[in-house]
């Protein structure tokens, strides 16, 4: 289990750098996939509940510290993302389409939560005229990116859960 946690932490670090250096440079119609949230979901599929939730919190904390959002905003969102993944993984790991649907729903929920709580804490995210486009397209791109990331993470973390579907 320690090996899985270390791999997950490494994957989160790589995801953060790739997100900020590469993905953020290539917005399509103003939106980008959320590789960090996707990596948190991918790791939460394989980790035990508690490390998964703490991993989500850690990933968000690093993102907060690297950006200008209030410290704790993304930590809260990715903690919730990890928790929802842990709670629902047995239900959505039935087939590839259900996994895709779950990734879409969880990232959409995370983005909405980020926008709403961010606005409550002075980020004015909801006043952005393009917010709807970003909320709708971002999760779709994340699902598409998941086609490459989820199998890779499954390979790295191993697949010992019995009901898992190897995407």
């Amino acid at each position: 289990m320690t090996r899985r946690i270390l791999i997950s932490l490494g994957a989160i670090g790589v995801a953060i750098v790739v997100q900020k250096v590469v993905i953020a440079r290539i917005p399509v119609f103003g939106a980008t996939p959320d590789l960090v949230a996707l990596t948190v979901i991918a790791c939460s599929r394989r980790l035990r509940s508690e490390p998964a939730v703490v991993l989500g919190f850690t990933a968000g904390l690093i993102l907060d510290l690297l950006g200008s959002t209030p410290l704790g905003l993304r930590s809260m969102v990715l903690t919730v993302v990890a928790f929802v993944t842990v709670r629902t993984r047995d239900r959505f790991e039935i087939s590839i389409p259900t996994i895709g649907l779950a990734v879409w729903a969880i990232t959409l929920g995370g983005s909405v939560l980020l926008a709403v709580v961010g606005t409550l804490f002075g980020q004015k995210t909801l006043s952005d005229p393009n917010i709807l486009t970003e909320l709708l397209l971002g999760p779709v791109y994340t699902v598409l990116l998941g086609l490459a990331v989820l199998p890779l993470m499954t390979k790295l973390l191993g697949g010992e859960r019995q009901q898992e579907i190897v995407l």
């Binding site: 919190f57 704790g72 930590s75 903690t79 842990v86």
Partner: peptide
Amino acid sequence: RQDHATSFLVILVILSFALMTLD
């Protein structure tokens, strides 16, 4: 185990809100 995860969630969400306020 899921009870533990819920406890972790509650603690970390409270911690996040505390950090936001502090920041």
